[in-house]
Amino acid sequence: MNILSVENLSLSFGGLAALTDITFQVRAGEIFSIIGPNGAGKTSILNCIGGFYKPQQGRITLDGKDVTKTSPDRRAAMGLARTFQNIALFRGMTVLDNIKLGAHARLKTSLLQALLYWGPAHAEEMALREDVEKDVIDFLEIEPIRKLPVGALAYGLQKRVELARALAMRPKVLLMDEPVAGMNAEETEDMARFVLDIKEERGGTIVLIEHDMDVIMDISDRVMVLNFGHKIAEGTPEEIQHHPEVIKAYLGEKKN
């Protein structure tokens, strides 16, 4: 079953075409990776899916609902979560507060209710905290750091906290923009394992952008390759590695 579908997506900034006629489907429970050289349009696709860029053309469907015109916060509430290339944690807050914010998207009490009636909002908050502790903090092994301000953490841990915050939203689809960029070998291995666990233990669906080819080939179910805003290939890691267009895009053409 397709949980996310992108059809004929085109995006341009002024005269510059960032994406041209991109179509792909993401199946529930798979790791779908998007790769391509720098400037190929990978992050632009995530920003279109997230609702930050308005594509000139195309349709985006999340869990069967057309979300092309939906605002980013509504899409988040519908089950779309995201981690960022440059860590986008709320720096003034603790790890736990950051994670709880992710879970707030699921709370039923409205903003105004939360302002006016402390009672029901409070009860819901406590239930949420327990839930988050078990569900996310234990899973990502960040128990010892949960009371620390995020600014004080090492880079790899900050990335993990960002993932925790996204998971607390219980997303239907998790978009990850370069989760292992800038990490050392050990941190990379940890992160790759967590991403795989999200799929295998929790049945999560992940759309992944990454430059680390070892990670991509290890954990992806399917890979889509972009070059200059065009889709040039899609398939299993095995197929992609031997695809002539992909080899050309990455290594350049052989001159005879």
Binding site: G50, A81, L89, L101, A105, L111, A121
Partner: peptide, 22 residues
């Protein structure tokens, strides 16, 4: 909750949007 949402917005608007904050 609104206060926390306001602090989050102050910190990073794009991330706040992605958390479902209007």
């Amino acid at each position: 909750k609104v206060g926390v949402a306001m602090r989050a917005t102050a910190d990073d608007q794009m991330a706040a949007f992605s958390m479902g904050i209007n």
